[in-house]
Design a protein around this nucleic acid. Sequence first.
DNA 1: GTTCTTACA
DNA 2: TGTAAGGA
Length: 154
Amino acid sequence: MNRPSLRESNSGHIFSTEKLIFGIGEISRMTGVSTRQLRYWETKGYINSKDRQDEQQQRVYGYATFLKVSGIKTMLDEGYTLAAASAQTDALIQEGLTLRNFVLDAYHGLEEINGRMMLDLGDFDDAGQLRLYAYVEDHHVHYQQVLVSKDRRQ
DNA sequence: GTTCTTACA
DNA sequence: TGTAAGGA
């Protein structure tokens, strides 16, 4: 009945980060956190490395861990203790994920209607006859309902 | 050359 | 937390 939102049509994400994997040295150089600290933080449970039953025993980190380390580093530089920096970063990341899901649920694409680019926000009513659009004018967001005939749905 | 664990200044 | 040692 409703055109799928981006979140539904992309299994939860537009950009895949699952192939972004780094070694401990890379994470260290990217964030400015020493390898010693990374290993220590892991024992404390602040960060996690992927399962490493590999040929050797080297740690492998994913994008999520990179974000976590970056966040901790930033807050550490601002004077937070390691525990507080970790907690604060977790909260920020959680907010970010929630916000991302909110946007992906709402966004159904861009569409030009009567010469104006409109943000498609999906069905406005349960019947699926009214669709909600938004556009920006003079830095203000305007909302507009559009009557949609069923034959033009895809 | 890098990473790993353990141990010590 | 940095650094050294001794292996992988």
